[in-house]
Amino acid sequence: MKILVAVKRVIDYNVQIRVKEDGSGVVTDNVKMSTNPPDDNAVEEAVKIKESGKAKEIVAVTVGEEKAQETVRKALAVGADRGILVKVSGTVEPLAVAKILQKIVEKEKPDLVFMGKQAIDDDCNQTGQMLAAILNWPQATFASKIDVKDNVLEVTREVDEGLETIEVKIPSIVTCDLRLNEPRYASLPNIMKAKKKPLEQIDASELGIDIKPRIEHIKVEEPPKRKAGIKVSSVEELVQKLKNEAKVI
């Protein structure tokens, strides 16, 4: 079995983002970038499946600028075998990423595609479902547990009401939740080894698909700030304020 994992380079989740003064977006210059967190879980799961003997090869793919290579290298350092960077410049919307990944799937013919459930920059939560749709594959979204059976996956999904279990036939798309597993750290020797693993570069323009954005960003602004509150000195005071000042209890 072969697993393709899609990893996105995003502003690190610990960074307090800043909105640009001119409203054109958020500041990305000199800001720490990392792998989108649930994509680390997607890679980890693929590596675990390979370690269990059920998968032979893991290919990590990213769609992004030249520097997004780092994100692929990181996947290679924790166990992916090969990498692909599909080069684009500027914004690529989930629909366009899905169309690019469709081309990669047609070329690589993986049995499974693992992705994160949501990118923490655009918070779209779309790409995996879109890729599944255009490939006409089943989708198992928001996975917190994956069991690989013969030609099916049994996936536990985190849904609003609790947990749901579904069975999807392979080939299929899985989007991963952070609770799926505990991503490992790359050891120094493995980081060194990863530098020698193959990383193919493809220019998105070679794929012959329209990836122009369909959504105009008219303005990006800071959300309204909450006005500063007060500290209360005791539980009695808290209850009194909630009752008589805020009038919420």
């Binding site: 958020v26 918070d123 105009e216 008219i218 303005k219 990006v220 800071e222």
Partner: peptide, 15 residues
């Protein structure tokens, strides 16, 4: 909202 609600984007769909 984008970036966990740390920015609000006004977006226009052209589809």
């Amino acid at each position: 909202p984008i970036y966990a609600g740390n920015a609000f984007a006004t977006v226009k769909s052209t589809d």
